[in-house]
């Protein structure tokens, strides 16, 4: 690049961040030595950057920190409650098999975590008992397809309430943590973006996504199209908000839609 003032101006930002090549750096430094105008621009820009770097920072106080931990504890409690009933009753049947498999899977994966000696003796065939069996009992007919995911009884015990007996594994609070229950069963099931629309917007969103593969309720948009689809969805007149969890790249953007 020619050593003109205009070119040097273009390089000042990268020069300040030490992001130029050695040759480019030398070029800029040489120019600044002799050109007063450019030196003035450099000093001004550097000063703006320094001002930003020394911006006063807020600090968190103990009360704020404690509030964070309280909210987290609250979220932990909420994740243990049985989920509300699914509206599609016929799905319960297929849900049982899936749920049982899921329980087995999560028990196995827990057992394979190092440093969990208290879990391994419970074996891989017995499910983790939820810490509030009374809750499971009361809502068994509604939640049977969901409680196993929370580490409760397998769906097969819908008919008979699962009262804790001596032979069942009962893990104390400290042994089975709330985090365990909050971990999604499989990574691929996890929606990345949840879009929320009005009724009208929801219909529009469905038609935008109509060409794409679906994994249950999750639309799979290939990476090449994700920006385009995002823009389209957000431009819909019934668009309200979205919640996005940018997880690791899987080649797809996973979208779920919901209504207000």
């Amino acid at each position: 690049m020619k050593d003109t003032c205009e070119n040097v101006h273009e390089m000042l930002s990268l020069y300040i961040d030490d992001m130029l090549t050695e040759a480019e750096t030398k070029q800029v430094e040489k120019h600044l030595q002799t050109c007063q105008a450019c030196r003035a621009e450099y000093v001004f820009l550097k000063s703006i950057v320094s001002t930003a770097q020394s911006m006063p920072k807020l600090t968190v106080d103990t009360a704020f920190h404690e509030k964070i931990m309280e909210n987290v504890a609250q979220a932990a409690k909420e994740s243990q409650k049985p989920k509300p009933a699914r509206k599609n009753v016929w799905k319960l049947a297929s849900g049982f098999a899936a749920a049982a498999a899921v329980v087995a899977l999560s028990v196995i994966s827990l057992n394979s975590l190092p440093g969990h000696p208290e879990l391994t003796p419970k074996g891989q065939t017995e499910p983790i008992q939820s810490e509030a069996p009374q809750e499971a009992t009361a809502s068994e007919t509604k939640d049977s397809s969901d409680t196993p995911k929370k580490g409760g009884k397998p769906a097969g015990t819908v008919q008979t309430p699962a009262a804790p007996t001596g032979s069942e594994p009962v893990l104390a609070d400290e042994q089975v943590s709330p985090y365990v229950r909050a971990i999604p069963e499989t990574q691929t099931d996890y929606p990345v973006v949840s879009y929320c629309f009005t009724e009208e917007g929801y219909q529009a969103a469905i038609s935008i996504l109509s060409g794409f593969d679906k994994d249950g309720e999750v639309y799979l948009v290939p990476d090449e199209q994700k920006d385009e689809i995002r823009a389209k969805l957000e431009a819909v007149s019934g668009y309200l908000e979205h919640e996005e969890m940018q997880l690791e790249d899987t080649g797809f953007l996973k979208i779920v839609l919901s209504k207000e």
Binding site: L58, V60, F64, K67, I68, N71, V72, A75, A76, S79, Y179, A182, I183, P184, Q187, Y190, M245, L247, E248, D249
Partner: peptide, 26 residues
């Protein structure tokens, strides 16, 4: 500041909920 505090609270609740799915790739 108030908005920032609310946002920060939400960020850490989200962290708790989703930390199980962090694979360490980034």
């Amino acid at each position: 500041r108030t908005d920032a505090e609310d946002a920060t609270q939400e960020v850490f609740v989200k962290l708790y909920r989703f930390i199980g799915s962090f694979t360490g790739q980034s």
